[in-house]
């Protein structure tokens, strides 16, 4: 196991309300890490720190370190735009753009351009040609197991798709930017069981290429897909370990209460 995201002493305040308290956790590369806990315990807040989405919330204060491949993403010299390119995010409710299916995927790569030398962190880019863009769109859609369902209607509005398809479109859109980490915030909470199963299959398949962090309120889902599971309670990380161990032999009383459903 090689470490990918190393969080140390993370505290988050919204105004005077402390949402995360001294969280330290190391998330390994090419694995799925699930974040579970009762609602309001800070799960979303936690993953939104990893791609600095909380920067957008006025009165949100973050302290501590989040190192990605050894570099603190909250350092002053870090470009938040680059952070978000490397660390993609899929949200709770599918949120495709009001554009065509094709445009939903092509939107970001077209603006970012093609990285000629990834080590230069997006400073040396060139435009995608039309053909390259079409290839990239196809590749992303295939990777999200959506291509066969949409290949004949690429110019149709993304809103014509079902909820599950929209969510896979959002995953494809994220992958088109070529991130190394993808964060999922309860990606299945708006979907039916069949659509959920498809996303879960996809998640397991994705970890070959990406580090995946998924927030879920569904413990079975965590048990099904995650290699490791982190349990949060009232803004604190209570327990973190291999999923099997967490579900079978929790060390903390709170964890046990939560996974056995005996928590109020």
């Amino acid at each position: 196991m090689s470490e990918n995201i190393k969080v140390t002493g993370l505290n988050v305040w919204f105004d005077k309300n402390q949402a995360l308290k001294d969280v330290s956790i190391t998330i390994p590369k090419n694995e799925i890490t699930a974040v579970i806990g009762p609602s309001g315990c800070g799960k979303s807040t936690f993953i939104r720190c990893i791609n600095r989405m909380n920067d957008l919330v006025p009165k949100c204060k973050v302290t501590g370190r989040i190192e990605v491949d050894g570099k603190d993403i909250y350092d002053a010299d870090v470009d938040v735009v680059e952070v978000r390119k490397r660390i993609g995010m899929v949200f709770q409710k599918p949120n495709p753009f009001p554009k065509s299916i094709f445009e939903n995927i092509a939107y970001a790569p077209r603006i970012h351009g093609k990285d000629l030398d990834p080590s230069l962190q997006g400073t040396k880019v060139t435009k995608y040609t039309k053909k390259e863009l079409a290839e990239l769109v196809e590749r992303s859609l295939r990777r999200a197991a959506l291509w066969d369902e949409v290949k004949d209607r690429m110019e149709k509005s993304a809103y014509d798709l079902s909820g599950g398809q929209q969510q896979r479109l959002c995953i494809a859109r994220t992958m088109a930017v070529d991130p190394e980490i993808i964060l999922f915030d309860e990606p299945c909470s708006a979907l039916d069981p069949i659509a959920t199963a498809k996303i879960e299959d996809l998640l397991v398949d994705l970890k070959k290429d990406y580090t995946v962090v998924i927030v879920t309120h569904n413990m079975q889902q965590a048990a099904r897909v995650a290699d490791r599971t982190a349990f949060f309670y009232l803004g604190e990380l209570i327990e973190f370990g291999e999923t099997e161990r967490i579900f079978e032999k929790p060390e903390q009383k709170l964890t046990e209460q939560y996974i056995t459903g005996r928590m109020g």
């Binding site: 989405m53 978000r84 390119k85 753009f97």
Partner: peptide
């Protein structure tokens, strides 16, 4: 315009 659309764009590394 829903905030979720803006967040989607920003999360893709858009300014």
């Amino acid at each position: 315009v829903p905030r979720s659309l803006k967040e989607a764009s920003l999360a893709l590394g858009m300014t």
